[in-house]
Nucleic acid binder design. Structure first.
Lengths: 197, 197
DNA sequence: ATGAATAATGAATCACTATTCAAAATTAAA
DNA sequence: TTTAATTTTGAATAGTGATTCATTATTCAT
Protein backbone atom coordinates (compact mmCIF):
# COMPACT_ATOMS: atom_id res chain seq x y z
CA UNK A 1 0.00 0.00 0.00
CA UNK A 2 1.05 3.47 -0.72
CA UNK A 3 -0.31 6.44 1.19
CA UNK A 4 -0.88 9.94 -0.20
CA UNK A 5 1.97 12.43 0.19
CA UNK A 6 0.25 15.46 1.69
CA UNK A 7 -2.81 17.11 0.22
CA UNK A 8 -2.08 17.36 -3.49
CA UNK A 9 -5.68 18.13 -4.33
CA UNK A 10 -5.56 21.22 -2.18
CA UNK A 11 -2.11 22.18 -3.44
CA UNK A 12 -3.48 22.14 -6.97
CA UNK A 13 -6.53 24.15 -5.96
CA UNK A 14 -4.38 26.84 -4.35
CA UNK A 15 -1.84 26.88 -7.16
CA UNK A 16 -4.49 27.15 -9.84
CA UNK A 17 -6.18 30.03 -8.04
CA UNK A 18 -2.89 31.92 -8.18
CA UNK A 19 -2.31 31.08 -11.83
CA UNK A 20 -5.89 31.80 -12.90
CA UNK A 21 -5.73 35.12 -11.06
CA UNK A 22 -2.49 36.10 -12.73
CA UNK A 23 -3.08 35.17 -16.37
CA UNK A 24 -6.76 34.26 -16.53
CA UNK A 25 -8.32 30.82 -16.88
CA UNK A 26 -8.08 30.48 -20.65
CA UNK A 27 -4.45 31.47 -20.89
CA UNK A 28 -3.45 29.23 -17.99
CA UNK A 29 -1.66 26.00 -18.83
CA UNK A 30 -2.20 22.81 -16.89
CA UNK A 31 1.56 22.29 -16.92
CA UNK A 32 2.06 25.67 -15.22
CA UNK A 33 -0.50 24.86 -12.56
CA UNK A 34 1.20 21.53 -11.89
CA UNK A 35 4.57 23.24 -11.62
CA UNK A 36 3.19 25.90 -9.27
CA UNK A 37 1.72 23.12 -7.13
CA UNK A 38 4.96 21.09 -7.15
CA UNK A 39 3.17 18.18 -8.71
CA UNK A 40 3.49 16.28 -11.98
CA UNK A 41 1.20 17.24 -14.83
CA UNK A 42 -0.46 13.86 -14.71
CA UNK A 43 -1.30 14.23 -11.04
CA UNK A 44 -3.69 17.04 -11.87
CA UNK A 45 -5.82 14.49 -13.69
CA UNK A 46 -5.82 12.17 -10.71
CA UNK A 47 -7.63 14.77 -8.65
CA UNK A 48 -9.62 16.60 -11.32
CA UNK A 49 -11.52 15.49 -14.37
CA UNK A 50 -10.03 18.24 -16.50
CA UNK A 51 -8.91 21.85 -16.46
CA UNK A 52 -12.43 23.20 -16.27
CA UNK A 53 -13.16 20.96 -13.32
CA UNK A 54 -10.41 22.68 -11.35
CA UNK A 55 -12.11 26.04 -11.85
CA UNK A 56 -15.49 24.61 -10.91
CA UNK A 57 -14.06 23.13 -7.72
CA UNK A 58 -12.56 26.49 -6.75
CA UNK A 59 -16.05 27.98 -6.95
CA UNK A 60 -17.60 24.99 -5.20
CA UNK A 61 -15.37 25.56 -2.18
CA UNK A 62 -15.83 29.32 -2.29
CA UNK A 63 -19.61 29.22 -2.30
CA UNK A 64 -19.80 26.38 0.16
CA UNK A 65 -17.92 28.47 2.69
CA UNK A 66 -19.79 31.68 1.93
CA UNK A 67 -23.16 29.97 2.02
CA UNK A 68 -22.51 28.50 5.43
CA UNK A 69 -21.32 31.80 6.82
CA UNK A 70 -24.31 33.61 5.37
CA UNK A 71 -26.68 31.01 6.69
CA UNK A 72 -25.86 31.73 10.30
CA UNK A 73 -26.46 35.44 9.72
CA UNK A 74 -29.73 34.66 7.98
CA UNK A 75 -30.94 32.58 10.92
CA UNK A 76 -30.05 35.21 13.53
CA UNK A 77 -33.33 36.50 14.95
CA UNK A 78 -31.75 39.26 17.01
CA UNK A 79 -31.04 41.54 14.02
CA UNK A 80 -33.35 42.95 11.38
CA UNK A 81 -33.21 42.63 7.62
CA UNK A 82 -31.18 45.75 6.79
CA UNK A 83 -28.62 44.76 9.40
CA UNK A 84 -28.40 41.29 7.91
CA UNK A 85 -27.78 42.75 4.48
CA UNK A 86 -25.09 44.93 5.94
CA UNK A 87 -23.44 42.00 7.71
CA UNK A 88 -23.58 39.87 4.61
CA UNK A 89 -21.86 42.45 2.45
CA UNK A 90 -19.31 42.96 5.20
CA UNK A 91 -18.62 39.23 5.27
CA UNK A 92 -18.45 39.10 1.49
CA UNK A 93 -15.77 41.76 1.32
CA UNK A 94 -13.87 40.24 4.23
CA UNK A 95 -13.78 36.85 2.62
CA UNK A 96 -12.01 38.26 -0.41
CA UNK A 97 -9.75 40.61 1.50
CA UNK A 98 -8.11 37.50 2.80
CA UNK A 99 -7.51 36.17 -0.70
CA UNK A 100 -7.04 38.69 -3.47
CA UNK A 101 -6.34 35.95 -6.02
CA UNK A 102 -9.66 34.34 -5.27
CA UNK A 103 -11.28 37.74 -5.71
CA UNK A 104 -9.74 38.07 -9.16
CA UNK A 105 -10.90 34.62 -10.18
CA UNK A 106 -14.39 35.34 -8.91
CA UNK A 107 -14.59 38.63 -10.78
CA UNK A 108 -13.14 37.40 -14.04
CA UNK A 109 -14.41 33.87 -14.45
CA UNK A 110 -17.73 33.39 -12.70
CA UNK A 111 -20.03 35.11 -15.18
CA UNK A 112 -18.85 33.02 -18.10
CA UNK A 113 -19.29 29.79 -16.16
CA UNK A 114 -22.78 30.79 -15.07
CA UNK A 115 -23.79 31.56 -18.63
CA UNK A 116 -22.45 28.30 -20.04
CA UNK A 117 -25.41 25.97 -20.42
CA UNK A 118 -23.18 22.89 -20.48
CA UNK A 119 -21.92 23.51 -16.99
CA UNK A 120 -23.35 22.61 -13.61
CA UNK A 121 -22.21 25.49 -11.45
CA UNK A 122 -22.00 25.15 -7.66
CA UNK A 123 -25.38 24.61 -6.07
CA UNK A 124 -24.22 26.56 -3.05
CA UNK A 125 -24.27 29.68 -5.18
CA UNK A 126 -27.96 29.26 -5.84
CA UNK A 127 -28.62 28.46 -2.20
CA UNK A 128 -26.79 31.66 -1.32
CA UNK A 129 -29.02 33.59 -3.73
CA UNK A 130 -32.05 32.06 -2.03
CA UNK A 131 -30.84 33.28 1.35
CA UNK A 132 -30.53 36.76 -0.10
CA UNK A 133 -34.06 36.66 -1.43
CA UNK A 134 -35.47 35.61 1.93
CA UNK A 135 -33.72 38.39 3.78
CA UNK A 136 -34.88 41.10 1.41
CA UNK A 137 -38.41 39.74 1.47
CA UNK A 138 -38.33 39.80 5.26
CA UNK A 139 -37.32 43.45 5.12
CA UNK A 140 -40.14 44.32 2.76
CA UNK A 141 -42.70 42.59 4.96
CA UNK A 142 -41.51 44.28 8.12
CA UNK A 143 -41.58 47.65 6.39
CA UNK A 144 -37.91 48.48 6.82
CA UNK A 145 -37.27 48.16 3.08
CA UNK A 146 -39.26 49.98 0.39
CA UNK A 147 -42.07 47.73 -0.68
CA UNK A 148 -41.81 48.74 -4.33
CA UNK A 149 -38.40 47.14 -4.68
CA UNK A 150 -38.30 43.92 -6.67
CA UNK A 151 -36.42 41.31 -4.71
CA UNK A 152 -34.81 39.58 -7.67
CA UNK A 153 -33.72 42.81 -9.25
CA UNK A 154 -32.25 44.05 -6.01
CA UNK A 155 -30.28 40.87 -5.46
CA UNK A 156 -28.58 41.19 -8.82
CA UNK A 157 -28.18 44.93 -8.39
CA UNK A 158 -26.24 44.51 -5.18
CA UNK A 159 -24.23 41.51 -6.37
CA UNK A 160 -23.17 43.27 -9.55
CA UNK A 161 -22.13 46.36 -7.66
CA UNK A 162 -20.08 44.35 -5.17
CA UNK A 163 -18.43 42.37 -7.93
CA UNK A 164 -17.31 45.44 -9.79
CA UNK A 165 -16.01 47.15 -6.67
CA UNK A 166 -14.08 44.03 -5.73
CA UNK A 167 -12.58 44.12 -9.17
CA UNK A 168 -11.39 47.68 -8.75
CA UNK A 169 -9.97 46.87 -5.35
CA UNK A 170 -8.17 43.77 -6.66
CA UNK A 171 -6.60 45.75 -9.50
CA UNK A 172 -5.76 48.93 -7.57
CA UNK A 173 -5.90 48.23 -3.84
CA UNK A 174 -4.31 51.59 -3.05
CA UNK A 175 -6.73 53.64 -5.09
CA UNK A 176 -9.70 51.65 -3.78
CA UNK A 177 -9.08 50.73 -0.13
CA UNK A 178 -11.64 48.23 1.06
CA UNK A 179 -12.79 50.15 4.11
CA UNK A 180 -13.58 53.16 1.95
CA UNK A 181 -15.42 50.93 -0.50
CA UNK A 182 -17.41 49.34 2.31
CA UNK A 183 -18.46 52.66 3.84
CA UNK A 184 -19.56 54.09 0.51
CA UNK A 185 -21.24 50.88 -0.49
CA UNK A 186 -23.35 50.63 2.65
CA UNK A 187 -24.40 54.25 2.36
CA UNK A 188 -25.34 53.89 -1.30
CA UNK A 189 -27.41 50.80 -0.65
CA UNK A 190 -29.21 52.32 2.30
CA UNK A 191 -29.82 55.88 1.14
CA UNK A 192 -28.89 56.20 -2.51
CA UNK A 193 -27.31 59.36 -3.80
CA UNK A 194 -30.01 62.02 -3.54
CA UNK A 195 -29.46 64.58 -0.85
CA UNK A 196 -32.99 65.57 0.07
CA UNK A 197 -31.55 68.18 2.45
CA UNK B 1 -8.91 47.22 -60.06
CA UNK B 2 -11.36 45.32 -58.00
CA UNK B 3 -13.83 46.97 -55.67
CA UNK B 4 -15.09 45.54 -52.38
CA UNK B 5 -18.23 43.41 -52.52
CA UNK B 6 -20.42 45.02 -49.87
CA UNK B 7 -19.19 45.64 -46.35
CA UNK B 8 -17.47 42.43 -45.34
CA UNK B 9 -15.81 44.05 -42.36
CA UNK B 10 -19.18 44.92 -40.92
CA UNK B 11 -20.63 41.53 -41.84
CA UNK B 12 -17.87 39.89 -39.84
CA UNK B 13 -18.41 42.24 -36.92
CA UNK B 14 -22.11 41.47 -36.81
CA UNK B 15 -21.62 37.75 -37.29
CA UNK B 16 -18.98 37.52 -34.60
CA UNK B 17 -21.20 39.37 -32.15
CA UNK B 18 -23.85 36.72 -32.69
CA UNK B 19 -21.38 33.87 -32.37
CA UNK B 20 -19.58 35.33 -29.35
CA UNK B 21 -22.96 35.90 -27.68
CA UNK B 22 -24.07 32.36 -28.32
CA UNK B 23 -21.02 30.29 -27.37
CA UNK B 24 -18.64 32.80 -25.79
CA UNK B 25 -15.46 34.26 -27.21
CA UNK B 26 -13.10 31.46 -26.29
CA UNK B 27 -15.27 28.68 -27.64
CA UNK B 28 -15.97 30.55 -30.87
CA UNK B 29 -14.14 29.38 -33.98
CA UNK B 30 -12.95 31.78 -36.64
CA UNK B 31 -14.30 29.36 -39.24
CA UNK B 32 -17.78 29.59 -37.68
CA UNK B 33 -17.66 33.36 -37.69
CA UNK B 34 -16.64 33.35 -41.34
CA UNK B 35 -19.47 30.98 -42.19
CA UNK B 36 -22.01 33.07 -40.26
CA UNK B 37 -20.77 36.14 -42.14
CA UNK B 38 -20.92 34.36 -45.52
CA UNK B 39 -17.26 34.98 -46.02
CA UNK B 40 -14.20 32.78 -46.43
CA UNK B 41 -12.06 32.06 -43.40
CA UNK B 42 -9.16 33.93 -44.90
CA UNK B 43 -11.22 37.05 -45.44
CA UNK B 44 -11.48 37.50 -41.69
CA UNK B 45 -7.74 38.11 -41.66
CA UNK B 46 -8.02 40.70 -44.39
CA UNK B 47 -10.10 42.89 -42.13
CA UNK B 48 -8.81 41.94 -38.69
CA UNK B 49 -5.39 41.21 -37.29
CA UNK B 50 -6.61 38.14 -35.46
CA UNK B 51 -9.53 36.73 -33.51
CA UNK B 52 -8.92 38.94 -30.51
CA UNK B 53 -8.88 41.99 -32.73
CA UNK B 54 -12.45 41.25 -33.80
CA UNK B 55 -13.59 41.35 -30.19
CA UNK B 56 -11.68 44.56 -29.53
CA UNK B 57 -13.25 46.21 -32.56
CA UNK B 58 -16.73 45.25 -31.36
CA UNK B 59 -16.01 47.13 -28.14
CA UNK B 60 -14.39 50.01 -29.98
CA UNK B 61 -17.58 50.59 -31.97
CA UNK B 62 -19.78 50.08 -28.93
CA UNK B 63 -18.01 52.59 -26.73
CA UNK B 64 -17.49 55.07 -29.54
CA UNK B 65 -21.24 55.23 -30.04
CA UNK B 66 -22.06 55.29 -26.33
CA UNK B 67 -19.46 57.91 -25.58
CA UNK B 68 -20.83 60.25 -28.23
CA UNK B 69 -24.38 59.81 -27.04
CA UNK B 70 -23.36 60.39 -23.45
CA UNK B 71 -21.36 63.41 -24.37
CA UNK B 72 -24.37 65.35 -25.61
CA UNK B 73 -26.20 64.59 -22.36
CA UNK B 74 -23.17 65.64 -20.37
CA UNK B 75 -23.00 68.98 -22.17
CA UNK B 76 -26.70 69.77 -21.72
CA UNK B 77 -26.91 72.69 -19.30
CA UNK B 78 -30.69 72.59 -19.00
CA UNK B 79 -30.73 69.52 -16.72
CA UNK B 80 -29.04 68.86 -13.39
CA UNK B 81 -26.64 66.12 -12.41
CA UNK B 82 -29.14 63.54 -11.07
CA UNK B 83 -31.19 63.93 -14.23
CA UNK B 84 -28.11 63.40 -16.34
CA UNK B 85 -27.30 60.22 -14.46
CA UNK B 86 -30.85 59.07 -15.01
CA UNK B 87 -30.71 59.82 -18.72
CA UNK B 88 -27.38 58.11 -19.10
CA UNK B 89 -28.58 54.90 -17.49
CA UNK B 90 -31.69 55.09 -19.60
CA UNK B 91 -29.58 55.40 -22.74
CA UNK B 92 -27.33 52.61 -21.61
CA UNK B 93 -30.20 50.18 -21.22
CA UNK B 94 -31.79 51.32 -24.47
CA UNK B 95 -28.62 50.77 -26.42
CA UNK B 96 -28.55 47.14 -25.41
CA UNK B 97 -32.28 46.55 -25.71
CA UNK B 98 -31.73 47.01 -29.40
CA UNK B 99 -29.02 44.36 -29.49
CA UNK B 100 -29.25 41.55 -26.98
CA UNK B 101 -26.24 39.79 -28.49
CA UNK B 102 -24.12 42.84 -27.93
CA UNK B 103 -25.37 42.93 -24.35
CA UNK B 104 -24.22 39.35 -23.83
CA UNK B 105 -20.80 40.05 -25.28
CA UNK B 106 -20.45 43.15 -23.11
CA UNK B 107 -21.43 41.28 -19.98
CA UNK B 108 -19.33 38.21 -20.60
CA UNK B 109 -16.17 39.45 -22.24
CA UNK B 110 -15.40 43.02 -21.21
CA UNK B 111 -14.00 42.40 -17.73
CA UNK B 112 -11.41 39.93 -18.95
CA UNK B 113 -10.24 42.27 -21.69
CA UNK B 114 -9.96 45.17 -19.26
CA UNK B 115 -7.90 43.11 -16.86
CA UNK B 116 -5.51 41.85 -19.51
CA UNK B 117 -2.41 43.99 -19.31
CA UNK B 118 -1.32 43.10 -22.83
CA UNK B 119 -4.40 44.64 -24.36
CA UNK B 120 -5.17 48.20 -25.34
CA UNK B 121 -8.89 48.44 -24.68
CA UNK B 122 -11.02 51.10 -26.38
CA UNK B 123 -10.06 54.60 -25.31
CA UNK B 124 -13.69 55.62 -25.65
CA UNK B 125 -14.47 53.52 -22.62
CA UNK B 126 -12.13 55.56 -20.49
CA UNK B 127 -13.47 58.79 -21.95
CA UNK B 128 -16.93 57.57 -21.04
CA UNK B 129 -15.78 56.94 -17.47
CA UNK B 130 -14.41 60.47 -17.36
CA UNK B 131 -17.78 61.87 -18.38
CA UNK B 132 -19.37 59.93 -15.56
CA UNK B 133 -16.90 61.32 -13.05
CA UNK B 134 -17.59 64.91 -14.15
CA UNK B 135 -21.32 64.53 -13.84
CA UNK B 136 -21.17 63.05 -10.35
CA UNK B 137 -18.69 65.69 -9.25
CA UNK B 138 -21.03 68.36 -10.57
CA UNK B 139 -23.84 66.89 -8.49
CA UNK B 140 -21.73 66.86 -5.35
CA UNK B 141 -20.74 70.50 -5.84
CA UNK B 142 -24.30 71.65 -6.44
CA UNK B 143 -25.46 69.80 -3.37
CA UNK B 144 -27.92 67.51 -5.11
CA UNK B 145 -25.77 64.45 -4.42
CA UNK B 146 -24.47 63.44 -0.98
CA UNK B 147 -21.05 64.98 -0.54
CA UNK B 148 -19.68 61.99 1.33
CA UNK B 149 -19.95 59.78 -1.76
CA UNK B 150 -16.67 58.91 -3.45
CA UNK B 151 -16.97 59.58 -7.16
CA UNK B 152 -14.77 56.72 -8.32
CA UNK B 153 -16.46 54.22 -6.08
CA UNK B 154 -19.90 55.34 -7.19
CA UNK B 155 -18.99 55.06 -10.87
CA UNK B 156 -17.97 51.45 -10.47
CA UNK B 157 -20.88 50.74 -8.16
CA UNK B 158 -23.40 51.87 -10.74
CA UNK B 159 -21.61 50.27 -13.70
CA UNK B 160 -21.35 46.92 -11.94
CA UNK B 161 -25.01 46.99 -11.00
CA UNK B 162 -26.08 47.82 -14.54
CA UNK B 163 -23.88 45.15 -15.99
CA UNK B 164 -25.30 42.43 -13.79
CA UNK B 165 -28.88 43.49 -14.42
CA UNK B 166 -28.25 43.52 -18.15
CA UNK B 167 -26.93 40.01 -17.76
CA UNK B 168 -30.10 38.82 -16.06
CA UNK B 169 -32.22 40.50 -18.68
CA UNK B 170 -30.20 38.98 -21.53
CA UNK B 171 -30.52 35.49 -20.06
CA UNK B 172 -34.16 35.69 -18.92
CA UNK B 173 -35.86 38.63 -20.66
CA UNK B 174 -39.29 37.49 -19.47
CA UNK B 175 -38.34 37.22 -15.82
CA UNK B 176 -36.45 40.51 -15.94
CA UNK B 177 -38.28 42.91 -18.26
CA UNK B 178 -36.17 45.96 -18.95
CA UNK B 179 -38.74 48.54 -17.94
CA UNK B 180 -39.11 46.91 -14.55
CA UNK B 181 -35.33 46.80 -14.21
CA UNK B 182 -35.06 50.46 -15.15
CA UNK B 183 -37.70 51.61 -12.66
CA UNK B 184 -36.16 49.65 -9.80
CA UNK B 185 -32.67 50.68 -10.76
CA UNK B 186 -33.43 54.39 -10.79
CA UNK B 187 -35.18 54.17 -7.45
CA UNK B 188 -32.34 52.22 -5.86
CA UNK B 189 -29.74 54.67 -7.09
CA UNK B 190 -31.68 57.69 -5.95
CA UNK B 191 -33.08 56.55 -2.62
CA UNK B 192 -31.54 53.24 -1.68
CA UNK B 193 -33.58 50.62 0.12
CA UNK B 194 -34.28 52.09 3.57
CA UNK B 195 -37.82 53.14 4.14
CA UNK B 196 -37.44 55.95 6.64
CA UNK B 197 -41.21 56.24 6.80
C1' DA C 1 -10.69 43.44 -74.87
C1' DT C 2 -6.70 43.60 -71.91
C1' DG C 3 -4.14 43.89 -67.86
C1' DA C 4 -3.16 46.07 -63.53
C1' DA C 5 -4.63 46.34 -59.10
C1' DT C 6 -7.02 44.85 -55.41
C1' DA C 7 -10.23 41.55 -53.02
C1' DA C 8 -11.46 37.14 -51.71
C1' DT C 9 -10.67 32.36 -51.04
C1' DG C 10 -10.01 27.94 -48.34
C1' DA C 11 -6.96 24.09 -48.09
C1' DA C 12 -2.70 23.26 -45.82
C1' DT C 13 0.19 24.33 -42.14
C1' DC C 14 1.78 24.55 -37.72
C1' DA C 15 1.99 25.67 -33.08
C1' DC C 16 0.06 24.79 -29.02
C1' DT C 17 -1.49 22.25 -24.98
C1' DA C 18 -4.99 19.29 -22.77
C1' DT C 19 -5.11 14.70 -21.80
C1' DT C 20 -3.53 9.85 -21.56
C1' DC C 21 -1.22 5.90 -19.86
C1' DA C 22 2.53 2.73 -19.20
C1' DA C 23 6.06 2.75 -16.10
C1' DA C 24 8.17 3.96 -11.66
C1' DA C 25 7.89 5.00 -6.86
C1' DT C 26 6.23 4.57 -2.35
C1' DT C 27 4.07 2.52 1.44
C1' DA C 28 2.22 -1.16 4.47
C1' DA C 29 1.00 -5.62 5.34
C1' DA C 30 2.32 -10.48 5.04
C1' DT D 1 12.08 -9.21 2.23
C1' DT D 2 8.58 -9.73 -0.81
C1' DT D 3 4.29 -8.66 -2.53
C1' DA D 4 0.36 -6.07 -3.53
C1' DA D 5 -2.10 -2.05 -3.59
C1' DT D 6 -2.07 2.62 -4.43
C1' DT D 7 -0.05 6.98 -5.80
C1' DT D 8 2.74 9.67 -8.73
C1' DT D 9 5.03 10.66 -12.76
C1' DG D 10 6.08 13.01 -17.31
C1' DA D 11 7.01 11.87 -21.97
C1' DA D 12 4.20 10.81 -25.87
C1' DT D 13 -0.08 11.50 -28.10
C1' DA D 14 -3.62 13.45 -30.40
C1' DG D 15 -6.84 16.84 -31.41
C1' DT D 16 -7.79 21.35 -32.20
C1' DG D 17 -8.30 25.44 -34.46
C1' DA D 18 -5.84 29.95 -35.45
C1' DT D 19 -3.30 31.70 -39.05
C1' DT D 20 -0.96 31.77 -43.58
C1' DC D 21 -0.43 32.31 -48.40
C1' DA D 22 -0.46 30.80 -53.11
C1' DT D 23 -4.14 30.89 -56.08
C1' DT D 24 -8.29 32.59 -58.15
C1' DA D 25 -11.81 36.07 -58.96
C1' DT D 26 -13.46 40.53 -59.85
C1' DT D 27 -13.45 45.21 -61.16
C1' DC D 28 -12.04 49.39 -63.61
C1' DA D 29 -9.17 52.24 -66.45
C1' DT D 30 -7.19 52.29 -70.75
Amino acid sequence: MRIKEGDKRNDILLASTRIFAKVGYHKSKVASIAEEANVATGSVYVYFKNKEDILLQIFEELWKKLYNEFKSISLDTSIDSPQKIEQMTELFFEHFTADIDLAKVFVNEQTQLLNDQMIQFSRYYYKFLDLGRDIVEEGKLSGSIYSNIDVDIFRHFILGAIRNLLNQWAVEPDKFPLDKIKTNFKSLIKHGILNSK
